[in-house]
C-alpha cells in the first residue's frame, strides 16, 4: 500500500513541476494564487513544528521542557545565522546537554 501512496504523491509532484510547460499552457493561474502559495511553507512546517513540541489529548496539553528550551535556542540560532546546519547542531546539543 505504501508504494501506491508513494507513487501517487510522486506523480502529483511531477505534474505540478511540469504543469506550466507548453503542452499545458492554457492552465490559468490567478494572481492571488501566488499570495496564497507564499504562505504554504510557513504554515505546513509550523504545523509540524508545533505538533512535535506539544501533544494535546483533547483535554490538556503536554510538552517536554527540554525540547521546548532546545527549540527556542534553535529559533534564536535560525534567526541569527539562517543556517540549517548551525540550527540543527545548536538544537541537538541543547537537548543532549539538558
Amino acid at each position: 500500500m505504501i508504494w501506491l501512496v508513494m507513487v501517487l504523491t510522486g506523480l502529483i509532484n511531477f505534474i505540478f513541476r511540469i504543469s506550466m510547460f507548453s503542452e499545458f499552457r492554457n492552465i490559468h493561474v490567478p494572481p492571488s494564487f501566488h499570495r496564497y502559495v507564499s504562505y504554504v511553507p510557513i504554515s505546513v512546517l509550523s504545523a509540524i513544528i508545533a505538533s512535535s513540541l506539544f501533544t494535546h489529548n483533547g483535554h490538556e496539553i503536554s510538552y517536554d521542557v527540554e525540547k521546548l528550551i532546545a527549540a527556542l535556542a534553535a529559533v534564536a540560532c535560525a534567526y541569527l545565522t539562517k543556517s540549517v546546519s548551525a540550527t540543527l547542531i545548536v538544537g541537538l546539543v541543547t537537548v543532549w546537554l539538558i
Binding site: 509540524i48 513544528i49 535560525a78 540549517v84
Partner: peptide, 9 residues
C-alpha cells in the same frame, strides 16, 4: 522540527 525551524524562522 529543528530543520523546519531553520527553514521557517
Amino acid at each position: 522540527p529543528l530543520t523546519f525551524i531553520a527553514i521557517v524562522v
